[in-house]
Each structure stands twice: as C-alpha cells, then as structure tokens.
Design a protein around this nucleic acid. Structure first.
Lengths: 353, 353
DNA sequence: CTGAAAGCGCTTACAG
DNA sequence: CTGAAAGCGCTTACAG
C-alpha cells in the first residue's frame, strides 16, 4: 500500500518483481479475470469496475508480463527480419522503413542476419521461436534458402525473389523495367555494340535480372550482345574501377556507354575513366543502379535506376501482418517497379541544352 | 508414434501445436523434469538417460517454448536497440556490427527507433517488456531521454553520451581528439582566422563537441575564434552547399580551410566550391567527419575523422551483456578514440609530393 | 457483469 | 540420478 504511494519505479533494493495481475486485482478489489478483461475486452466489463481497475493499473504502474501472455495467445507481435550481408545504405533504408511501419501497426522487429537458418544459430533458443512471422530477403539463387523457408512453420514473407509454388507472400522489385529503360536511354546516343553491362557475380538475382534485361533490349535492336559486353564481378567500387581500367588500357572505353549493376560499381568506373582523362558524359555515358544517396552528391551527378526500398519494406511488413492476422488469405505476390532517373552522367547533348 | 515417423515439419493440416516437453518425455519414457534437465543441466542426468532423451528431442524436432521458459527464468536473451533517426550508413554499420556480436554471444536484437519511451509506443505491449536490457543511442542533449532511461528497471547501455551519476554502462566516441587533430592539421597551412567549422544545430552532442574542440585549438594558437567561424545548420549536403555558396558570394571562401561536422556537409561544401571555380585542396582545404564510405569514392578523396562505429556497436553489446550477466558489476564508461584520416581534400603542397 | 478454476509449457526445489 | 508437485503470470471457457 505504502509502496504504491512511492514512485513506482524508484530503485530501492534488490531484483524486486514488478507488480503482477494479482497485485492489481487486490488493489482494485476484483478477481484477476476481471483485470484481464479490462485490459483485453473492456466491453465485457461494467464501466465502474473498469474505471476502478484502470486506476489500480495506473497507480501501480502495472504492465502485463508479455511472456505469460504470449504463452497463452501464441502471439508475440514480434516480426523477425532476416537480411543477407547487404550493403550499408540499402540495409539502413530497409530497416528504417520496416521499423517505422511495424511500429505503426503495433509490432516489433527482431533482426538477424540469417534467422531462417535455425541450424546456424547458437544453441540458446532461436530467433524463430520468438517471432510470429519472418521477413526474409534473398539475393542469391540458392535452393537451400528456399528449402529452409519451406520448412518453417510460421508465416514468411520473401523479399527479392518470387519462388513459384511456395505459399508465401513475396515482394520483388521489377529489375527488368528499370534496366530496360536505362538501356534504351543509353542506346539513344550510343550504338548497341558500344554498350556494356557491368554486373556482380553470376547467381545474384538482381544482377542477373538486370543483365538479362540489358541483353534483351540489345537483341530487340537487332544486336546479339558479345559476351564481353556483359561483365561479372561483384557489387563494389573496386570491381568497377578494375573493369574500367582494363577497358581503358585496351582503348575500348571511350565512346561507350555503361549500365552498372549498382551505384558503387558505377562510381568505380567513373573514377577510373576520369583518371584516364575521359570526360563524363562526353566520352563515357553511365547509369548506376539503386539510386542511392551518393548519386546526387557526385559531380557529375550519377544517373541511376531507382529501387523503391521504402515501399518494399513497408509492403513486406504489411504482407506479413496480413498473413498473420488473416491466416486463410491467399498469398499475394507484389512486384514494385524500378524507374530510370536521368542525371548528368548519361546525358546526351540534345537532352542537355 | 506414427506421426513422429513422418517428416517433423510436413505441413499436413491445421494450426497444429508443436511438440511440447511432455511429448518428448512420453516418447523417451521419462518425466518432463528429466527432459528439462537434459536440456539445461546435462551433468545432473545419467548418460544413458540423456542419450535417450536427446534422441527423442531429435526425432520429434522438439524446440522448447521460449515464452514458457522466459516466464520462469525472466530472461529472453533479447536485447533492445533504440536508435535516433540517424543517417543511413552509420545506422547500418551500427546495426550490422551489433547484430554480429549479439549473435556470437547468443543474443538477439530487437530494434526500435525510440524503445526507451514506453509512452510513445502503441498500446499492444512495449518492446521494453520483451527485452532483457536496452542499448540506447542518444544524439541530443535532452533531459527527457535521460529521465526516461533512469526510470527503466532493466539494464541499459547508453551510446553517445556519458551522463554523470547514472548507473549505466556508457560508450562514447572521443570527438575531441579527432576534431583537435583535424584542426591542427588545417592550421599547418592555413592561418587560424581563415579556418571554419561548419556544424549541425546547437544541442547535437557530437556537433557541439567537435565545435568546442575546434575552437579550443584555435585559442591554443592565440586566436579567439570569431562567431562567424563556427556555423550551425544541420547534418546535410544542402546545408553545406548553402553555407559555402554564401561564403563564395561574399568572397571569403578562397584560401580558407574547413572542418565539417560530418561528411555530407563536407561534400556539399566541396561541390559548391567547385561550382564556383575553386580547386580543392589548392583554394580550399576541407576535412569531413565520420570517415564514411563516400570519402574514398569522391575525387579528390575526402579527408575525414574516423568514428569507430564497429567498435562502438561491439562494445555496447558486450557492455550490456556484462551488466545482464554480472548484475553486481560496476558500470564501465568506455571512450573510443576518433582519428584523423588525411586524404587529398586537405593536403598541403609539402605533404603532397 | 463477475469469479473460481483449469491450463499454457516450462523450471526447480523437495523427496526419494 | 529421477519424479511428483508447485508455481511463473497470464487467458478463457464455464458457471453463476
């Protein structure tokens, strides 16, 4: 009684237990069932009783024990997020937007680099056992991930790939449309045989789709791309630099146009080209991918294909919550468009008055 | 029995419950207490019994219900991380490294932009009630955050500020040393009255500390900085651009040197200066702060003060786990050094042969 | 509208 | 070394 009078969370002594539902019930002179009802289904309780209970809750600073609650309801309102070892900015944007959305909807986010591989985790309880559902982002074409996901007994939303026949919600970005627009844009002022795609390693879903779209547009113009027009490396500045230096040294870079698989590769190429005295965009036109923050910070500003990370994050959270809260619903497969953002690095004379 | 024979997680019918400890006990012909012991204190069980139980666990694909477990042990092995609305790359680095470390130590990370303000959350259970402890990053000098933290009844580790008298572990980066080194470096070739600090808003802890260190070094050289030498805006490209444009227009930028409060501001200044025909570093020497990825992607490469985000994340996780697992221990206050990384943007002739 | 009671799945003294 | 039992803090039929 007197203890309730003092500040609820004044740190006086030992690991004192927080007040339980029992304490509230006593304080309000009702049963614990009634306290529970006031908190979860107020409409079942008389207004006056509810009022009394709410006061007790307030005075004691009571907060229900979520573990006890989850044990009963089998719901924690925690969403797991499993991201591959992806790059800084993309990761941040995704998490930030997912967090915001989850928050709005009353959920929390548990992050873990590979939460969908229970065998990889430490022995002490898997993230999987704490979450109601899982958002998994996949970037590689590997069977093992899909198998792991198929083996889970909680709802899953997959970002990045749309595996046919799996009963999960999926969010993908349509790499094809953005890559195609970018390629067409390059072809406006550069002949097909002088266009290049500089990608990541074969097997990366995004890079491969972007490469395919690139090749497909060239073919549409009646040009079968030479294998050397499509290079494979990794998503890094260094790889872009290296690729461009080699082309420079063999004298094939000037007068060409490049679609890079991401912005970092593009920056590597730009820096190497300029180091060799080429002017962007006069001697080399270039378009990156992701439309990351850096694009408008560079001089010349870098053209790029925008990937709607913010929407992807938001849609992923919504999709997962949907399959959590409407168990019967048919999984939706959402595809978000990418779009070309033209800046100085790829402008042609007529476009640049 | 026959059900155990089929694949453990074959999705046959309805929301079937996973096997509980009871199922394992029956399968192995022991009591649930014994199953629990095999899992938590194997040394208390005879090898042969343990073996039998382990087989049952394996065959049934049993995983303990963490909610029931946490209800008893009052431990979830989940760490909450509360970050301010900070910028992309920093956020990503911090989370990535914290995640890796938490994983190594058998913990999970629950993220939330402002987990330390229970009143702000949605009504459905606070993140606070799920986590064993909280890592809070603070960037502003506001009493309200500290009060909120002081009111929490779980262990807290604070990143970014070292509030005196609070019994929490703290991790801060020593802005002073890096900012001082950078200022001294600028003074090597630029007179004190031509040096500028371009910061974020007053009240931001990092920006203020960096400004103070800057001013202090100037004073050490016998120069009391003019108020106009220390500007306040925000951590953005736009602010840097704007500041530099104004200085250019009044003709005071050429021949000066700038320490920016972060890399984005620095890039804004660089771009504006070049647009006005200034050469970096000949006409303007500049050093950023954070040493983000972008520094070495720019031309000229941007000098910057490195902030050890990776170590901060790792230390924060370790510190929190320490106060979780060694409740009596005295809170440690860790200060990690920042360091100057000189690149082309601030090089002086003699340094650049 | 309210309470007594059962039970969620586990851990941990307490006996044996 | 092992089991029966109490109990963690809740929710939810079931009676009244």
């Amino acid at each position: 009684m007197t203890r309730a009078e003092t500040s609820p969370s004044s740190s006086n002594d030992k690991p004192k237990r927080p007040v339980s539902i029992r304490g509230v019930a006593e304080h309000a002179g009702v049963s614990i069932a009634t306290v529970s009802r006031v908190l979860n289904s107020p409409e079942l309780v008389s207004p006056s009783t509810a009022e009394r209970v709410q006061r007790a809750v307030r005075e004691l600073g009571y907060r229900p024990n979520l573990f006890a609650k989850s044990l009963l309801t089998r719901r924690s309102r925690v969403i797991g997020v499993s991201l591959p070892d992806i790059h800084g900015e993309f990761y941040a944007e995704l998490m930030h937007n997912a967090d915001r959305r989850a928050c709005e909807r009353g959920y929390h986010l548990l992050v873990s680099s590979n939460a969908h591989h229970p065998d990889d985790g430490p022995q002490n309880g898997f993230a999987l056992d704490l979450v109601d559902g899982l958002i998994v982002m996949l970037t590689e074409r590997v069977r093992v991930d899909l198998d792991a996901i198929a083996g889970l007994d909680i709802p899953v939303t997959v970002i990045g790939v749309d595996p046919p026949g799996m009963p999960v919600e999926t969010i993908i970005c349509d790499n094809t449309i953005g890559a195609a627009r970018a390629t067409e844009h390059l072809l406006v002022a550069t002949p097909p045989e002088r266009c290049f795609f500089v990608g990541a390693h074969v097997g990366n879903l995004d890079s491969d789709q972007r490469a395919t779209a690139f090749a497909s547009v060239l073919r549409g113009r009646g040009h079968e791309p030479d294998p050397r027009q499509i290079a494979h490396g990794e998503f890094s500045f260094e790889w872009g630099w290296e690729w461009a230096m080699e082309r420079c040294d063999e004298g094939t870079l000037a007068g060409s146009a490049v679609l890079a698989a991401n912005d970092e590769i593009a920056v590597g190429i730009v820096n190497a080209a300029r180091q060799r005295g080429l002017d962007i965009p006069r001697d080399l036109r270039i378009v990156g991918f992701d439309d990351s923050r850096i694009c408008s910070l560079l001089r010349p500003e870098l053209s790029s294909v925008r990937v709607p990370v913010d929407e992807m994050a938001r849609e992923a959270v919504d999709a997962l919550i949907r399959s959590l809260e409407e168990p019967g619903s048919t999984p939706r497969h959402i595809r978000l468009a990418t779009s070309l953002v033209v800046r100085d690095s790829s402008r042609t004379a007529p476009e640049n008055p």
